[in-house]
Computed example of a mutant assay.
Amino acid sequence: MRKLLTISALLLAGLGVSAQDKQREDAATFAKDIAQPGVQVFDVRTAAEFRTGYLPNALQADYTRKEEFQERVKYLHKDQPVYIYCLSGGRSTAAAKWMRENGFTSVVELDGGINAWKQAGMSLAGAKGQQPQMAISSYLQQVQTKGWVLTDVGAAWCPPCKQMEPVLQALLNERKDVKLVKVDGGNDTEVMQSINASKLPTFIIYKDGEEQGRFTGVTSKEQLMNMLK
């Protein structure tokens, strides 16, 4: 009986290792898998690291900033595969563990992170020099005009910002009189500081150059419409 229990324990341990291996992939396999439709690519490095280059179609949330991470991760789909990475694998392993414990059904880690990706000879998206920031004077010129203006402080890599894209498009389709001004939440830090917009996304509504209201986070078209009255 003792021998049988020992064999069973070894088999279970082997199955556990096998299951764990399937949760982590080398760079070549990871690159092939993230090219499939329906997957979510998730970068848990800092915003500064992200700006040095990222994997195609990646969304970003800094795992070391717990409030930001837990807010943005809410906008990922738990029932769709998430392919997660950081610089070398430490943060993504911790983040993946948290996500699995909180209902995500398939979380796959990039073994060795961005370092392994580069060592495999693969390129990064967005690996360019810092883009010039929008000047505060340029922003003020755009919003201090006659009529309605909607400022969208967001970024393509921000999960809640991505969720708001169709909402904004529907709003603009219905309200042709509203001018949209976009502020890059990963680059235009001087404008963000001047208008006190520290979180993504932030929406600010102006009429005839005067601020009428603002909203931070995900909202509905109807709520934004109500602010445009």
Results as ranks from 00 to 15, higher is better:
D43F: 04
K66M: 07
S92A: 08
G53C: 08
D79M: 09
E109H: 12
L59A: 15
V108C: 03
H77L: 13
R100E: 13
A95M: 07
V82I: 11
L110C: 04
V107E: 09
G53H: 14
G113M: 03
E49H: 12
T52Q: 15
L59E: 14
V39E: 08
Y83F: 12
R91K: 13
A96L: 01
A47M: 08
L76P: 15
Q80A: 15
T64P: 01
E49Y: 12
A95P: 00
Q119A: 09
R72M: 07
C86E: 07
A47R: 12
Q80P: 02
N115G: 01
V82F: 11
Q60Y: 00
A116T: 02
S92K: 05
D43A: 10
E71V: 03
K97M: 03
R100M: 15
A95F: 03
M99A: 12
I114D: 02
E68A: 13
Q119N: 15
R91V: 01
Y85F: 12
Y83W: 11
Y85S: 03
A48H: 09
N115D: 10
F104C: 03
G53L: 10
A96C: 03
D62Q: 14
R45K: 09
F50E: 12
G53S: 14
D111H: 11
D43E: 11
K74F: 04
N115E: 10
H77T: 14
S88E: 04
Y85M: 11
E68P: 00
K78H: 08
A48W: 01
L87E: 13
K97T: 06
R45E: 04
T105Q: 15
Q40T: 03
Y85V: 02
N57L: 07
F69L: 01
Y63G: 09
D43M: 05
G90I: 00
K97R: 15
G53T: 10
E49D: 15
G38Y: 08
I114C: 01
I114A: 07
Q70C: 04
L55C: 08
G38F: 04
R51I: 03
V73C: 07
D43L: 04
G113W: 04
E67M: 06
K97Q: 14
A116F: 00
N102P: 03
A48Y: 02
D62L: 11
P56M: 09
N115F: 01
E49A: 14
C86F: 05
R100I: 01
R51M: 14
T105C: 02
N57V: 00
A61Y: 10
Q70H: 12
A47Y: 05
K66N: 09
A120K: 11
Q80C: 02
A116P: 01
P56W: 05
M122H: 12
F50V: 06
Y83H: 14
F42L: 11
K74E: 10
G89F: 03
I84A: 09
S92C: 01
